[in-house]
Amino acid sequence: MKRTVHTDDAPAAVGAYSQATTTDDLVFTAGQIALTPDGEMRADASVADQTEQALSNLRAVLDEAGSGLDDVLKVTVFLDDIEDFEAMNDAYETFFDDEPPARSAVGVAALPKGAAVEIEAVAVR
């Protein structure tokens, strides 16, 4: 059975989507960018700082869904400049250090609200 997830510890959805949806055993998150939980966009922050904010948001959504970063199976990272991969990766690995999930990183033309990075995940519950 599908259930939607909402937490005030991550930014509210800015469109017609949920922060995450779950089934009995899986969590699918929406993409997280460098929006603070109170809705402040950190577009001027470095790619590393934006990555940390996006992953902090992702952690809050997963926690609300009854999951966590250790339960993530797959991550997709979208970068508005693929040359920022190394800076993103350095920040990313501080969140997934022991047994990191599978991951794809994709260069895109633009991201919402001028973000440099957007991150989504699939996790188990």
Rank of each mutant, 00 (worst) to 15 (best):
P100C: 02
L111P: 02
E118P: 00
T36Y: 14
M1P: 01
G31E: 08
I82C: 01
D90P: 00
A105I: 15
E118R: 04
A43I: 03
D44R: 10
T76E: 11
G39A: 08
D84Y: 01
Q19W: 05
D44I: 05
A115F: 06
G15Y: 13
H6E: 08
G68N: 05
N57R: 09
D71K: 14
A48E: 13
A16G: 05
V5R: 01
S46Q: 09
A116G: 14
F85C: 00
L58R: 04
S18W: 09
E118Y: 04
A121R: 07
A20D: 09
D9E: 12
T21S: 11
H6R: 10
A102M: 03
G66I: 12
F85L: 08
D49K: 07
M1S: 11
T22R: 14
R103E: 09
K74N: 15
P37W: 08
N89L: 03
Q53G: 04
I33V: 15
L55A: 06
D8R: 15
D49E: 15
G68Y: 10
K2V: 09
A91H: 04
D81V: 05
G114D: 06
S46F: 11
I119K: 03
K74D: 15
G31Q: 04
A110Q: 13
G15S: 15
V5D: 01
V47C: 12
A115G: 05
A91M: 05
V122N: 03
M88A: 05
A13K: 05
L79I: 00
R42P: 00
F28N: 08
R42W: 10
E93S: 09
E118H: 09
D90W: 00
D97H: 15
T4I: 11
S67D: 11
A45Q: 01
D44Q: 14
Q19H: 07
P101Q: 03
A13S: 14
G114Q: 07
P112R: 11
A116N: 09
A65E: 07
A34C: 13
L55T: 00
K113I: 01
T4N: 10
D84T: 01
E93M: 06
S56V: 01
